[in-house]
Amino acid sequence: MSGTGQEQSVGIPPAEQASSARLTTLRILLSNEFGLLVLIVLFAIIFSTISPAFLSKFSLYALGRTSAVNIMIGFSMMVVIITGGLNLSVGSIGVCAAMFGGLLMQAFAMPWPLAVCGGLVMGAALGALNGFIIVRSGLHSFIITLATMSIFFGVMIFLTRAESYRDISPAFTSFGRMKLVGIISPLLLVSALAGVLLSVLFRYTALGREMLATGANERAAELSGIRVNRIITYCHLLSGVLAGVAGLMLVSRTGAAIPSMAGQLGQDWLLPAFLGPVLGGTLLTGGRVSVLGTFLGSFLVTMLTTGLLLMQVGAFWMQTYLGMLLLAAVLIDMVRRSYLTRRKLI
């Protein structure tokens, strides 16, 4: 699926070659990323006309800070979706990593860079454990991560006695509350950096290409010499690290590591985790990824949430709107895909 645009245009008869430039433009205009950009601009205009507070410095800053975490959660799910799997335990892992980081800072008085590394190692370990069990058992990642979501969260609650760590290093919290140029949160830069690194991984490195190949067709990948099991474990490990980053970002923002910050069993992260990649055009069956799409998708979701809250249309209904958004996104994507297939654009 991925990167076959150029190769396929060779197969188009010469008569249609002339219009290929027009087709390329059309393809860009119909791409997910372009559609998301249009939506982001459109909703920004709508929200700012209805409520001028939307464009205030603080509102923009808060938007960037919140979306940074959501983007990270989206990335965390994305790197597993590309293998055709799922990771229901992103929220659980995120909270575990954050709590471990908090423990290192409070109980062991570690300097914050070390504690952050500790938290990320915890995320990586839990992710790798997921990958190991999935690969060894040969069972679908859905049921394994459903079980580990419950186990990770249960062990964490048991060990912490459901208490928060509030003794967070001030240097670390000030990072989450810092304002660059008045409106940009450094957290958003962290997400952007992660996005760039992930793009490089999937576009230019053998490992990234092998991940995509595994997702597109596991058997074919295996036959062409890719160690599929190892690749799947790496993807889950990466997912754990990214979930850990998201969890630690939340700690840095709120100034405390709280066991309930992702809801019961970390379930509250599930919807944002899927919304970003699905809106961004990452195929749920695996093999196709759009890092930029996930970035924009998660940003759009956060913007819609913030905007609707500002318009005071009822915070309690928010979940309904987000659910409908996911539904609309998959339906529109289906229509778009069938249109593109009919016009032979993909």
């Binding site: 899927f274 749920l284 309690f316 209904w317 979940q319 709107y321 659910g323 996911l326 539904l327 998959v330």
Partner: peptide, 21 residues
């Protein structure tokens, strides 16, 4: 023909949202 996982994840949040609303 979209996977039941995605559909019911979306409807989960729609129903829960109506409940909270």
């Amino acid at each position: 023909g979209i996977s039941a996982f995605v559909i019911t994840l979306a409807s989960l949040s729609v129903y829960k949202g109506v409940n909270l609303g």
